[in-house]
Design a protein around this nucleic acid. Structure first.
Lengths: 115, 115
DNA sequence: TTGCCATATTCGCATATGGGTATACGTTTG
DNA sequence: CAAACGTATACCCATATGCGAATATGGCAA
C-alpha cells in the first residue's frame, strides 16, 4: 500500500499539477474534453484520464451531449480541502496575532508534550 | 517524470494522509519527534522521513535542542494551498449566488448546445 | 570511555502513478 | 452502410513513493 489512491483522496487528486491545470480551465466554465485539450499541454488521452480521476474524487461532473462530454467543476468535494486549509489558517493567524503568547506556549508544550 | 516530487510540491506533500496526521499533531504546538510518534500510528523512522519531506517543502521548521528535534508548523508554505482553494471558493460562491446566470453561461460555452 | 537515548538514514520490496501510443467505443454525417 | 469525429480505455515502461526493518549518527549520562 503506497499512498491513498488519487481516486480516493481529494488531496492526492489535486496533488497533480496537470490535474490542477485542468481544473483551472474548468474554472472558466463547463468545457468539452476537446476544449480542455486545447488549453492545456497534454494529449487527449491524458486529459481524459485525469478527468476521470477528478470525476471519481467528485471534483468534476460530466454531462454527455451527443458525442461530446462536457465537464464542469463540482466544488462540493473541494470542501475537505477548504476546511483543512482553514484549520491551519486559524492556527497561523492566532500565532501571528500573539507571538509572545505563542512562544510561551511553546515552552510549555515542548516540556511536557504529552496529554 | 511521474508526478511532481513530494519534496517540491506542497500539494503533493500534503497529499499523504500520514503527513497530514503529523501536521495535525503539530497544530497543537511544537513537538519533538518522539512526541509526534506517540500521537500518530507510525514507526519513528517513518515520522522522521515524513517530517523531512514536510520540512523540505517548507511546511514545518526544525529546532534542535540537545538530542531532541522539535518540529513546528511553518505556515508560510500553506499559502499556495490556501490561495488555490480560495480561487475555487470564489468560483463556487459566484455560482451558487446566481445559478440561472450560470446555466445561461453554460449554454453559451457549450456552443452547439442545441438539443 | 562505555552505554543509552533520540532521531536520521539506508536498503529492498511492492505498488501505483503518470507518460506515451494505439485502439476501441459511441455518435453523427454523407 | 461506411467514414469521420470525440472521447475513453488498454497496454507497456520508467519512476518514485511509501512501507518495513536494520542500522548509523549525535548527544547525554554514569
Amino acid at each position: 500500500m503506497a499512498r491513498a489512491s488519487t481516486t480516493t483522496d481529494v488531496f492526492n487528486a489535486v496533488g497533480d499539477a496537470h490535474r490542477r491545470a485542468i481544473l483551472d480551465v474548468l474554472l472558466t466554465g463547463e468545457k468539452s474534453v476537446g476544449a480542455i485539450v486545447g488549453q492545456v499541454s497534454m494529449p487527449q488521452p491524458h486529459v481524459s484520464r485525469h478527468l476521470r480521476v477528478l470525476s471519481e474524487v467528485g471534483l468534476v461532473e460530466r454531462r454527455t451531449e451527443g458525442r461530446h462530454r462536457f465537464y464542469r467543476l463540482a466544488p462540493d468535494q473541494l470542501r475537505p480541502l477548504h476546511d483543512w486549509v482553514a484549520k491551519y489558517e486559524r492556527a497561523i493567524n492566532d500565532r501571528l496575532d500573539r507571538i509572545e503568547d505563542y512562544l510561551t506556549e511553546l515552552q510549555r508544550q515542548g516540556e511536557d508534550s504529552d496529554t
